[in-house]
C-alpha cells in the first residue's frame, strides 16, 4: 500500500528532527550544556474542545520583555530557553471574556528541559480602541466578534448595542448598514510557571450551525449527512458527517468566518445536495429577510432584491395557505410570526 503525501512528509520531518543537530550550519561552537534552560507550553482549544490554530499567545517576563507565538494546527505553542520561574501568559489579541484557563499539567521531563536563550522583545500593545463597525452583507455578531477578538455575547450585550439588540433580536441576523459597537478590548493575563503546559479555551468559537430538514412539514430524521464548509479566507476545513436528529436537524461546528455550507443529504439514489450562504439572511422585519426565509423553505422567489413583486406575493400566499393563515399575500404580523417560528430565526 502506498503512503499518503501527509505520511511521507511526516516521516521525513521526524527523520529531520532525530538525525540533525540544532547547531548552525558552519558553527563550530555548541551552547554550554551546563546552562540549564526550561520550557513552557500552551494549548488552545475551541468550544468543540478541538485545537484552534493561529491564536496569538504572549509570554511576558517584564513590561518590555515578551515572547509572542501563534498556535499551530494542533493548537500548540512552545517557549524554549526560559530561566526557571514565573511568567505571565495571555491570548493577547483577545478580550478578557473571550478566553479562560481550563487546566494545567506538568510537562514530561524530556519536554520540560530546554537549551539556548529565549529572545525577549518589546512588542507594542494591540489596539484597544472602541470601534463603530458598519455592517455589510454576510456579517453577523459571531463573525465580527471573532474578527475583533471578543466573545460574541460580550459584544451583543454591550450597553452601546442595546438598541440594535432590541430591533434585530438575533445576534446572527444583522442588516447591511447596521452599526455594531465593538468595545475597547480589555487585557487579561494568567500566571504561568516553566515546566508546565496550560490548556486554554477560546470561548464562542467555533460557532454551531444547525439546519433543519423537513419533508411535507415533517422532520427528516435519521438521515445520513455530509457537510463541507468554505471560509472567506479559503481555509482547509474538515468535512463532518453524521445523522439528522429526531427533529431533522443537521448540527455541526463551523469556523466563525464560514461563508458557505454544502450539505449532502442521504446516500445512493435519494442523495440531495443543498448549499447555504452563512450569515446572509436579513432580519425578518425586512422584505429581503422574508424573501430569503421563504426561498430557504422551498418557496419559489424569483428576485430577492427586497422588492414586493408578484413572485414574492405568490410565495407568501402559498405559505399562508400551507399554514392555515388568512391568505392576503401581504407580510402581516401573523405571517411574520409563523415564518419566524418555522425558520427558527
Amino acid at each position: 500500500m502506498t503512503s499518503t503525501p501527509a505520511e511521507n512528509l511526516k516521516a521525513a520531518d521526524q527523520a529531520a528532527q532525530s538525525h540533525s543537530s540544532q547547531l548552525g550550519v558552519g558553527d563550530t561552537a555548541a551552547p554550554c550544556p551546563l546552562k540549564q534552560r526550561h520550557a513552557l507550553e500552551a494549548r488552545v482549544i475551541g468550544e468543540d474542545d478541538k485545537p484552534l490554530a493561529d491564536i496569538g499567545v504572549e509570554l511576558r517576563k517584564s513590561a518590555t520583555e515578551k515572547l509572542r507565538a501563534k498556535t499551530d494546527a494542533n493548537g500548540a505553542v512552545r517557549y524554549d530557553g526560559l530561566q526557571a520561574g514565573g511568567y505571565q501568559l495571555s491570548l493577547y489579541e483577545l478580550d478578557q471574556e473571550a478566553w479562560e484557563l481550563v487546566n494545567q499539567e506538568p510537562l514530561p521531563d524530556a519536554l520540560a528541559k530546554s537549551s539556548g536563550d529565549a529572545s525577549w522583545q518589546d512588542f507594542p500593545p494591540p489596539s484597544r480602541e472602541k470601534i463603530d463597525h458598519l455592517v455589510i452583507e454576510g456579517e453577523c455578531v459571531t463573525k465580527l466578534a471573532d474578527r475583533y477578538g471578543f466573545f460574541p455575547d460580550t459584544v451583543w450585550d454591550w450597553p452601546d448595542n442595546a438598541q440594535l439588540k432590541q430591533s434585530r433580536k438575533d445576534m446572527n441576523v444583522l442588516a447591511p448598514e447596521d452599526t455594531l459597537v465593538i468595545p475597547a478590548r480589555r487585557d487579561k493575563e494568567i500566571p504561568a510557571q516553566t515546566g508546565n503546559r496550560y490548556h486554554l479555551k477560546r470561548k464562542g468559537i467555533p460557532a454551531k450551525l444547525k439546519i433543519r430538514f423537513l419533508i411535507a412539514g415533517e422532520p427528516r430524521d435519521n438521515v445520513p449527512y455530509l457537510v463541507s464548509v468554505t471560509t472567506l479566507d479559503a481555509q482547509t476545513v474538515a468535512d463532518q458527517q453524521g445523522m439528522t436528529d429526531a427533529e431533522g436537524f443537521v448540527s455541526v461546528f463551523v469556523p466563525p468566518n464560514a461563508s458557505t455550507a454544502t450539505v449532502v443529504l442521504d446516500k445512493g439514489e435519494w442523495q440531495e445536495t443543498y448549499e447555504f450562504n452563512i450569515g446572509y439572511i436579513d432580519p425578518i422585519d425586512t422584505v429581503r429577510g422574508v424573501q430569503g426565509r421563504l426561498r430557504d423553505l422551498g418557496y419559489d422567489i424569483e428576485n430577492e432584491g427586497g422588492v414586493m413583486d408578484e413572485s414574492t406575493r405568490a410565495a407568501i400566499q402559498l405559505f399562508q395557505l400551507n399554514h392555515k393563515l388568512p391568505v392576503t399575500g401581504e407580510i402581516d404580523m401573523s405571517t411574520r410570526e409563523q415564518l419566524k417560528k418555522i425558520y427558527l430565526t
Binding site: 507565538a69 494546527a73 482547509t236 468535512d239
Partner: peptide, 20 residues
C-alpha cells in the same frame, strides 16, 4: 507551525476525499 499546518492540510484533504 508551517510544517504542522502542511501536514494538517494534507491529512484533512485526504480524509475529506475518503469521506466523499
Amino acid at each position: 507551525r508551517l510544517i504542522c499546518q502542511c501536514i494538517y492540510k494534507m491529512e484533512v484533504e485526504e480524509n475529506n476525499r475518503q469521506m466523499h
